[in-house]
Amino acid sequence: MEVGPGQFLLAKLDDVARWAQSQSVWPLTMGLACCAIEMMTVTAPEYDIARLGSEVFRSSPRQADLMIVSGRVAQKMAPVVKRLYDQMADPKWVISMGACASSGGIFDNYAIIQGVDTIIPVDVYVPGCPPTPDGLLYAVNLIQQQIREGGRGGILSRA
């Protein structure tokens, strides 16, 4: 589609906002365990998450849209994760990366939260131990799809 001189496009403002939001999902810099290394790998040249507009990892939860729970959540870390989630501004999304974050994985014991969805809502689960970087990229794709197709997002809706 090409817009020539004298021509213009019409769109709903909300759709434009959703399109823009889906292309700039900024994750929170929060590495927990093994999966965090694969989360770093997606920013490296081989996978390059910048293609999805998500290369800007924000260290402050106030500036982040996406929390990637990358690894096992220990009992001691759980309140911190919850607090960081609460500090993020709406609308916000959560990817539970890997078996440990999704269900406790192989660590069915006293120390690990059996699934981060017991403390915060999760939008996309990524299986694997750890998931491949491709898996994480696909999860970000799914988040973008959710935003564009009328999930949380846009200018009028709040999470």
Binding site: A74, Q75, V80, A111
Partner: peptide, 8 residues
């Protein structure tokens, strides 16, 4: 903050 109980 990442105590996993691996030894146990």
């Amino acid at each position: 903050y990442l105590h996993t109980g691996i030894e146990k």
